[in-house]
Simulated scan of single mutants.
Amino acid sequence: MAENAAEIVTRAELLEREIKLKEDYNGKLDTVNGKVDRLEEIILPWTQTLKGIEENTRRTADNYEKTNEKQDQILANYHNQNLRIEKLEGATTLKGERIKGKTAIIVASITALGAAGGLIGLFGERLAAAIFGG
């Protein structure tokens, strides 16, 4: 069969080998198709799940943004209210200090008048005699 170091193949052998290669190729192609079908069965449900997760994540992000905006508004209102309360407390404290000051002046005046009256009562006759001569 060997002629000039080349092997001679008959037409029947060539056809037989071609048929065997086609069968082998078709078998491998069927195996790949089966695996692709199984992948579709596995992946398609995951695709729907992932789409749902994506949508939920988007909604969560939107809600988070809205919550942050509302929280910022609440904190701004809280800050403004604290400023107003501090202003009112300051005014009340100032008013209280004024009342305390006025009360202290009145008490001191009454005490001074009482002390002067007491001194006049004790030393009045002697003082009158010394001043008016008597």
Score class of each variant (00 low, 15 high):
E89H: 10
I120N: 15
K95Y: 06
T103Y: 06
G117Q: 00
T111L: 15
G118K: 02
G90A: 00
R84G: 03
E125M: 07
T92H: 13
T103S: 11
E97R: 15
G118N: 03
I106C: 02
A112G: 02
R98I: 09
T93I: 11
T93C: 08
I120P: 09
L113S: 06
Q81N: 14
R98T: 11
I99R: 15
A108P: 09
G101S: 10
T93V: 14
K100N: 11
R84Q: 13
I85A: 01
G90D: 00
G121A: 14
K100D: 07
K102H: 12
G124Y: 00
I110W: 04
E89I: 10
L83E: 04
E89C: 09
E89S: 08
I106F: 04
G90E: 00
H79Q: 14
I85S: 01
L83R: 06
E89Q: 14
K102N: 15
A112T: 06
E97M: 13
Q81F: 12
A108I: 09
L119N: 09
K87A: 07
A112C: 04
I85K: 04
G114Q: 02
R98N: 11
T103G: 10
I120C: 12
R84P: 01
G101I: 03
I106D: 08
F123I: 03
G96M: 12
N82D: 08
G121V: 08
R98Y: 08
A91P: 04
V107R: 13
G114M: 03
I105Y: 11
H79A: 13
G124A: 02
T111F: 09
A116R: 07
T103C: 08
K102P: 03
I110C: 06
S109W: 06
K95P: 00
N80T: 09
I106S: 06
S109Q: 11
T111K: 10
F123M: 09
G96F: 09
G117I: 01
A116V: 11
K102R: 13
A116H: 05
G118S: 02
E97P: 02
G90C: 01
L94C: 10
L94A: 15
L113I: 09
A108H: 11
I99L: 10
L122Q: 11
